[in-house]
Amino acid sequence: MGTGLRIAGVLLFLAIVFLGVPWAIQASGRWDFYYTLTSVALLAIASAGVWLTFYIGRINIGQGAYALTGGYVSAILVMQAGWNFWLTLPVAGIFCALVSVLIGLPILRLRGVYFAMVTLVLTEVARLTALALPITNGAKGITSIPLPGEVSILGLTLIPAIDTFGDVKLAFYLVAAALMVIVFAGMYRLVNSRIGHLCRSLQQNEELASSIGVNITYLRIVAYAISSFLGGIAGAMFVAISQSIYPSSFTVVDSVNFMLNCFLGGLAYVFGPILGTLVLYFGWDLLFETGRFQLLIYSSVLILIIVLLPNGLLSVFERKRATAR
């Protein structure tokens, strides 16, 4: 793809996200789509993290644990320490990154299904921890969290308080979309830099990677920490929107979905998680009408897609290009 075409594609995407969607929602009056699309943006961020662990050759089914942890860190700091939400957002991410280093050191040695199984357990561990700890308030969770306040330096307002916007839903949508754009721009840069090249070497052959001098333990930890950071900020953002968090806010099902989003979009495509999340989230909603067949149809379609397009939805374009040659 030429550079010009790529820039045009990015501009088109930005125009749709920041202008097209608000306009379409305004025109159609489907205000509920703001919440749906905000969720898609945030889930895509968490999925981006999972995608990065796939990129170093690890199946990660534990992102829900970090989303939950990030959510609680933000909620506790806002409610008990009186912090501004915007400050808790990076702190929640960094907290998750640090936790993931401690957890990653022992478990990142595991490969394939062994790593996957351990991460699957992580989400459940996080849920049980949230139930047990006094600071997380057990099953009652933390509720009535105030909306994000304003950020100002020396009287200069950098970020206005969310509720000063006429339309809080629109404000949250724009914030979530902006966060998603920043995260995926960062991911794109990472994958196309030498770091991405090193990650691919890890994915393809860890033993050879270490024989050419790559500190594979370090690189794995770095990738996993970035992954968990993304899970943490996505979780924190969710809490700000729903103004509450419970031990069941992120469960094993969410962790599995984060992974499916990556599969569906395509593990080789850095923007795959966005498309995968969008399709999965809307697909599930659209099938609501089918009632008790919802899960059956949903799973069958998923299996069909994975069989027909094992490299994800975005590989459709790849195939077209290949035959065009």
Binding site: S201, Q203, Q204, N205, L208, I212, G213
Partner: peptide, 12 residues
């Protein structure tokens, strides 16, 4: 630095 008995490269 060691290379491998099996033909080990980065295939992708």
């Amino acid at each position: 630095v060691r290379t491998f008995q099996e033909t080990t490269i980065f295939r992708g």
